[in-house]
Design a protein around this nucleic acid. Structure first.
Lengths: 201, 201
DNA sequence: GCCTTACCGTAGCGTACGTTACGGTAACGC
DNA sequence: GCGTTACCGTAACGTACGCTACGGTAAGGC
């Protein structure tokens, strides 16, 4: 035998480098050479760890989902009521940390890549639907008196709002500052605090 | 002298071809050769009409803004009340036509491109701020009793929702069908029909 | 301590990109 | 109708890409 490498660690570090390049240079700047340089290795090592560029992209996409998922888990677990959990999950998705900003840029990059790459599109749909399902469950828990169709509409609305805020703020943080994002989310959550239905005034 | 070309017409046709390629192949597939092939000419003609690829991109971005702006103008003009105008403007941005779907994909592409291209980022910010201003004006007209800060928050919320719906539906139209988009917008417009403030239940 | 073997850096392949130089071609002035 | 001139198709340049083949190197087994 010869020396054994830590494959999982290499995959983690390389997909983190992929992420970093994606956030900084955008989708056109994501090349194997750029990833290798950022990771402090060569393109040979990159393609020994991942079969091809698409495998690297897929792994980085999974990493992004895992990170956001874990943060959502933590936010949800820390809240004591369903409404508070819902608000926490939505707010953390629009949190003002630089790390989150980077994630938003990467998310936009993968969204655009999914438009031309069926594999990335499938991943994106799956992850996004899971996020919608999570939000939908929290909405239903917060408002057990609502019909499922209302919960579904509300959850897609909330997810679209949060992702839209993230996408727009990633390019124009001045127009969409953190405070505005929080206010927007709280405005959208107002119907959940109302004694009426989601569409009633 | 020699034969004179219709520069404006060529620019229009080439940026339409650019747009078409962008919608179909995504940003990575947007090459001068693909644009030339789609426009039925050669790369030489493309680069005689536009100085370089970036000029072509900029012109296509302006064309996208002009189209969406004109449609918003039409929707706004056809409505008889400020609230109806606001709803029409938002709904046309999420209209279910294939043309609009194409625009959504192109918009996502330009959004991602703006993350790495300062020129496109400036254009994006300018156009988006104009859209927010338009929505803000309609909100203020529909609810003259609201404070400016509430109008601003509501308008950024509505714009983020609409753009988020467009972005998500462009990759996953099944999860975000037209009906769901319309319901989401009407849900978000509910506070404007309420006799209370934007944050009240 | 040597041999085997996995690992990965190097170098270069083929391809496609943006861009440019040049020559052919068609229209206008006269 | 002829020369001039703007226009644009052709072809190729340099570059950078994804990817691969090969050889050096270091870590294990015995």
């Amino acid at each position: 035998m010869a020396r054994r490498r830590d494959l999982a660690d290499q995959q983690q570090r390389l997909s983190a480098a992929t992420w970093s390049v994606l956030a900084e240079r955008g989708l056109p700047g994501l090349t194997l050479r750029a990833v290798a340089e950022r990771a402090g290795c060569t393109t040979g090592m990159v393609l020994h760890t991942f079969a091809d560029k698409q495998a690297l992209l897929v792994h980085a996409r999974e990493l992004l989902h895992r990170r956001t998922g874990e943060r959502a888990d933590a936010a949800e677990a820390a809240a004591d009521t369903p409404l508070a959990a819902l608000r926490a999950v939505l707010l953390q998705a629009a949190s003002p940390t630089e790390e989150k900003r980077e994630e938003a840029r990467v998310w936009v990059g993968f969204l655009a890549a999914a438009l031309a790459d069926p594999v990335l599109a499938d991943l994106h749909r799956g992850y996004n639907r899971r996020f919608v399902d999570r939000v939908c469950g929290l909405v239903a828990a917060a408002r057990p008196d609502w019909r499922p169709i209302d919960c579904a509409t509300t959850s897609t609305t909330l997810v679209a709002l949060v992702e839209g805020l993230n996408a727009l703020a990633s390019v124009d943080p001045h127009t969409y500052p953190d405070q505005a994002q929080r206010r927007a989310i709280d405005t959208a959550l107002a119907p959940l605090r109302s004694p009426n239905g989601p569409l009633a005034s």
